[in-house]
């Protein structure tokens, strides 16, 4: 199956500033693709190139097989975009604004709009100037999900939302994917990406510094290991285990950080009397910080 979005050698310069330095991406249909990176890594610049708001300095972007440089209108008919920096017309009510954008898209369903507003607890009749940043974000989310787009490009979609609404957003996102949408989800909220993304690319200083499936990232991520031995810990054997770093022994209590497979550790522990054991779920955030920090996870 052809990729929904294919980016090759994307470069974007602002004068002497190299905001994006040769990005390659390929996103498959019905995939939720996480796009991670710290502020200033080039995420929003990349996204604004994808949507046609910026002209790439070099590289090609193909969406649904169409050339983004030539077929912008046809592409935008099939995508929904939620910008990271959200500025909405102050004097319009949310309903007026949603209707206005709907008319530009050729009409959207009023019933679906009401349903989305209800689920996101958004009052559509209030002027935008009276809305909090979270509620403005909800307006943009209504627009994004209302479009029934084949590709959703979402830049920091939950910024300003309370945890309840963040959870509702995840539900909506999964529903959209189940309905056939592909999602390009840019965020620096790692827990959010961790929960929904099938694959992830990590951006640092304008380039992809790591990419892979979530399983890949979890495998590369470090886990905290904590073991209470019934007897004295086998300190020398533990220290010799591959992937086990920073071992600490306090009486019968052993802690360490594990990177890589857990099998050798379990084999060793099976030979000893263990009172209890705790292995924390590998955390994408740590993997991300390792990658961005220049270390190898």
């Amino acid at each position: 199956m052809d990729p929904v979005l294919q980016v090759e050698g994307l470069v974007k310069h602002y004068g002497a500033v190299e905001a994006v330095r040769g990005i390659d991406l390929s996103i498959e249909p019905k995939e939720i693709y996480g796009f991670l990176g710290p502020n200033g890594a080039g995420k929003s610049t990349t996204i604004r190139c994808l949507v046609g708001l910026l002209r790439p300095t070099a590289g090609t972007i193909r969406v649904f097989g169409l050339d983004a440089a030539k077929d912008g209108v046809a592409i935008r008919r099939r995508i929904a975009y939620l910008p990271g920096e959200l500025r909405l017309p102050e004097r319009l009510t949310a309903a007026q604004f949603v209707s206005s954008i709907g008319r530009l898209r050729g009409g959207e369903g009023a019933a679906r709009c009401q349903e989305l507003a209800g689920r996101l607890q958004l009052d559509l009749d209030r002027p935008m100037r009276e809305l909090s940043s979270g509620n403005r974000r909800k307006v943009a989310l209504v627009l994004a999900f209302l479009a029934n787009a084949e590709l959703m490009i979402l830049d920091e979609p939950t910024s300003g939302l309370d945890p309840l609404m963040q959870r509702e957003f995840i539900v909506l996102l999964r529903e959209a994917r189940d309905a056939g949408a592909t999602v390009f989800l840019s965020s620096h909220v790692l827990s959010e990406v961790q929960r929904v993304a099938d694959r992830v690319a990590v951006l640092g200083e304008g380039a992809v510094v790591a990419s892979g499936t979530m399983a890949d990232f979890r495998g590369r991520a470090r886990s905290h290991v904590e073991v209470f031995f019934a007897d004295a810990p086998p300190t020398a054997e533990l220290a010799a285990l591959p992937g086990l770093v920073d071992p600490q022994v306090t009486g019968q209590h052993f802690t360490a950080t594990l990177s890589g497979p857990i099998g050798p550790l379990l084999s060793l522990l099976a030979q000893h009397r263990v009172a209890s054991m705790l292995v924390e779920e590998p955390d994408l955030e740590e993997a991300f910080l390792d990658i961005y920090g220049g270390g190898k996870p």
Binding site: L53, G72, Y81, E85, R87, I101, R105, G106, A140
Partner: peptide, 14 residues
């Protein structure tokens, strides 16, 4: 400049 055109220009219009 205020970013208020962003969502309009992301629609299927030139």
């Amino acid at each position: 400049a205020a970013g208020r055109l962003e969502l309009y220009l992301a629609q299927p219009v030139r």
